[in-house]
Amino acid sequence: MMRFLAAVIFALPWIVQADGIVAENAYIPVAPPMVHSHSAYMSLHNNGDKVRSLIGVAAQEYGMAHLHQSQVIDGIASMSPVAQLDIPARGSVALAPGGLHVMMMMPKVAVQAGEVVLLTLTFADGELMTVSALVEDRNAGS
C-alpha cells in the first residue's frame, strides 16, 4: 500500500514546493543489496526573503535518517551530523555526493531502482515538507 501511495505522489510534478522552499531532483543512488545505509541528495532553493533552516529529516521505510556531511580533512574522509542547515534568502544549498547528504539507515524493505522514498524535511519554523526521492540506477547520471 505504501509503495502504491508513493507511486501516485511520484506521478505529480517533479518539483516539490513548501512555503518558499523548492526541492529539486531528489534522488537516492541505488546501493549494493548488502548495504543498509543509503544517501539521498537534492537541491534546495529558498525563494523567500528570510533564511530558512532545515533542522530534521525522516525517511519513510527507514528506521533512522539524519542530515550528514562528508568531508575530507587532511586526506581523511569522515562524516559528521549537521544539526541545522541554513538555506539563505534567495539562495540554494546542494546536497550532493561527497558532501551534504540525507543519511538513511535501517531500511525496512529492500530499496530498488525505480522506487520512490518519501522524505520529510522539518524546518526551524515548524514547517514540514515532503519530498519524493527517486531511487536511481548508478548510471542514471543525475
Binding site: 546501493a31 543498509h36 545505509s37 574522509a77 562524516m79 555526493p97 561527497g98 538513511m104
Partner: peptide
C-alpha cells in the same frame, strides 16, 4: 561497505 556517501561515489 556500509559507507553511504563517499565510497559509492568514489567507486562510481
Amino acid at each position: 561497505n556500509s559507507c553511504p556517501d563517499v565510497c559509492p561515489f568514489t567507486l562510481g
